[in-house]
Design a protein around this nucleic acid. Structure first.
Length: 254
DNA sequence: TTCCAGACTA
DNA sequence: TAGTCCGGAA
């Protein structure tokens, strides 16, 4: 049975002192109850049975392939992926991998074929274009590998901050920042894990990184994406089956 | 802000 | 049938 220590998290009401220019002990803002909320979300995610667990990026690359190929496949499945359609994305990745999914094989593939394969994931015209452009850049500029910094990753067409941080996490096993997608953005706003409501995912990322301990940065995307797929849905969240219903600022009572 | 491409659902 | 849904680009 789950016996949770009810440590009341404290909200610190003052900002770091600025009198003498000495960096104080950094008492910083943190959201009320966040540790308890996090613990309960972990509990709800314990079975790892959300779509992202079965068919997320981690399941979409050949872990036996050479590291460079693996990293390319990670980036590609990020570029393909379509939150709401994990199974469609992983099916498309499977088809691509059966053809031997490398920088060269993608460059050789004509747009129509690539389009046919990825068509069901949506936004396929854009994605074909970006995948081709990015793959060409990887070959020319990075010797067929993917870059290893966020700054370089976001230069690639079709790669923004969210994908860049996930690629750093998964492909390079390095924590560069919190990957904020629509689920993380929505849920952290509902929980008031941001000091004041944020409008854009990038704002959310900055706001979270300000207080969330760094050792949780990697976990948070996986945790909240699955939670968002199964419970904290974008429309009509299933508050009645959520363990946080009594301590969630956004909980709807039925 | 709007577009992309379609699926899902209220 | 109208409204909502990625994340990135322009």
């Amino acid at each position: 049975p789950r016996r949770s220590r009810r440590r009341k998290s404290i909200t610190i009401a003052y900002e770091p002192g600025q009198e003498d220019g000495v960096e104080p002990q950094r008492p910083r803002w943190e959201p009320r109850d966040w540790q308890e909320q996090l613990e309960r979300i972990r509990e709800m995610r314990r079975n790892r049975d959300a779509p992202v667990d079965e068919m997320g990026v981690e399941k979409c690359y050949d872990s036996s392939a050479p590291p460079q190929v693996m990293r390319y496949q990670v980036l590609l499945s990020l570029m393909l992926s379509s939150q709401t359609k994990d199974q469609v994305t992983s099916a498309a990745m499977l088809r691509l991998r059966q053809r031997g999914l490398t920088v060269d094989s993608v460059l050789q593939m004509d747009d129509a074929t690539l389009g046919q394969i990825i068509y069901p994931v949506g936004f396929w015209r854009n994605k074909v274009k970006y995948i081709k452009q990015t793959t060409a850049i990887l070959k020319q500029k990075y010797g067929g590998d993917i870059p290893s910094t966020v700054e370089e990753l976001v230069q690639l067409p079709g790669v923004g901050p969210k994908m860049a941080h996930l690629a750093m996490n998964i492909a390079w096993d390095s924590v560069s920042g919190i990957a904020v997608d629509t689920h993380v953005h929505r849920i952290t706003n509902r929980l008031k894990w941001v000091k004041k409501e944020t409008k854009y995912p990038e704002e959310t990322r900055v706001a979270l990184e300000d207080w969330l301990p760094r050792d949780l940065w990697r976990e948070i995307n996986w945790l909240l994406v699955g939670f968002g797929q199964q419970t904290c849905l974008p429309v009509n969240p299933r508050c009645s089956q959520c363990l946080n219903q009594d301590i969630c600022p956004a909980a709807k009572k039925h």
